[in-house]
Design a protein around this nucleic acid. Structure first.
Length: 103
DNA sequence: GGGGTGACCCAGT
DNA sequence: TACTGGGCCACCC
């Protein structure tokens, strides 16, 4: 596996800061990094997580609709429920108290 | 430098 | 509620 690029590093740094029991969407991450770096998009964040996400709390990153990463639904749901994240059916309940934004 | 590839998003149907 | 099409953009040939 190739080393993370500069943009990938900024994504990983942010994901590492998400507290237990809270989540961010790919779109939120893209918006935050675009404010700070002027780069990125939700799709690019997804690509970064697919390639480099294994070393960070990737289960705290979900789609804007609360869907879990393809191929890792069971693991993600197990970890999130253990942290107290509420579910509605198969997806995370994307309500204010669970969404996190960096201070 | 040009084209393909996504762990996305949103509006429309 | 579920699916589609268009837009998106860093990264890798």
């Amino acid at each position: 596996m190739n080393p993370p690029t500069e943009y990938a590093e900024s994504v990983l740094d942010l994901v590492e800061r998400i507290p237990p029991g809270r989540v961010m969407s790919y779109g939120m991450i893209a918006e935050y990094l675009r404010e700070r770096t002027g780069r990125g998009s939700p799709r690019t964040v997804g690509t970064v997580m697919a390639r480099y996400g294994s070393g960070v709390p990737w289960h705290r990153v979900v789609s804007g609709a609360g869907r879990l990463p393809p191929g890792h639904e069971q693991t993600a749901r197990q970890r999130l429920e253990a942290e107290g994240v509420p579910f509605r059916g198969q997806h995370v309940l994307m309500a204010d108290p669970v969404l996190w934004w960096p201070e």
